[in-house]
């Protein structure tokens, strides 16, 4: 379980996170929703200790972050985290070199699933393939938690479908996933839990099936209520 407890973050005078708390469980897909600038990416960066927070704490399975955390949690930012001049094979080699949890079999499987060519350079990949390669780097790690920053944004419809398939596949089965998005339509049925953010705070936080069962509302309905105010 990833527990985010009352985290605060300022950029200069601007408060980006103003006491955000939520939990993300293993085996569930938790979706951080907010219109742009709501601090979604900052939360993921904070979980990975890629940016300092000015208050609160983050626990992963009850522990504070430390270097081994990166063998438990993988983060897939919205841009690929490899050098553009590397080939796909080299990038995979790099991961294999540094991560004990790198699963080469899974990586090869993903490679053929996404139809990526190992000899291709990252700089020459299409947008969609870059996103897929980026996803591969995270998914091929045998980690307990996966964080994805806007995995669907800015790519073509077919790539999106292919990426969506990942969410219903064995590739993330049993893991805890946190994704951020500002656009829910595509994935409304794919997620377990929603954390709605605005102005640096959590406005609402619910399980989608419960929402539908108890209130008969869709996620978009709730978003409409929240953001129209």
């Amino acid at each position: 379980m990833i527990e985010v407890r009352d985290i605060k973050k300022k950029f200069g005078r601007k408060k980006v996170l103003n006491g955000v708390s939520f939990t993300a469980n293993k085996g569930e897909i938790t979706c951080l929703i907010g219109i742009n600038g709501a601090g979604k990416t900052t939360i993921l960066n904070a979980i990975m200790a890629l940016t300092p927070i000015s208050g609160g704490e983050i626990l992963i399975n009850g522990e504070k972050l430390h270097k081994e955390t990166y063998e438990r949690v993988a983060f897939i930012p919205d841009a690929i985290t490899m050098l553009p001049q590397m080939t796909i094979a080299e990038a995979m080699e790099f991961m294999k070199d540094f991560y004990k949890k790198w699963n080469q079999k899974r990586a090869d499987e993903l490679l053929s699933f996404f139809r990526l060519k190992p000899e291709e350079r990252i700089s020459s990949l299409s947008k969609g393939n870059t996103a897929k390669m980026n996803l591969l780097l995270g998914l091929a790690l045998d980690v307990e938690f996966l964080l994805m920053d806007e995995p669907f944004s800015g790519i073509d419809i077919f790539s999106r479908e292919q990426i969506a398939e990942v969410f219903t596949s064995h590739l993330i089965e049993g893991r805890g996933v946190i994704i951020t998005t500002h656009e829910i339509n595509d994935i409304e049925h794919l997620i377990d839990k929603v954390v709605l953010l605005d102005d640096g705070i959590v406005i609402k936080d619910f399980h989608t099936e419960e929402l539908r069962a108890q209130e008969g509302k869709s996620v978009v309905d709730v978003m409409r209520e929240v953001y129209r105010q």
């Binding site: 063998e71 983060f75 841009a79 985290t81 050098l83 553009p84 991560y99 004990k100």
Partner: peptide
């Protein structure tokens, strides 16, 4: 620098920073 922010990868390596 650049759109491929490699620092993400470096900082996320499971090793002492």
């Amino acid at each position: 620098f650049g759109k491929n922010t490699f620092i993400y990868r470096l900082l996320m390596l499971p090793t002492a920073r």
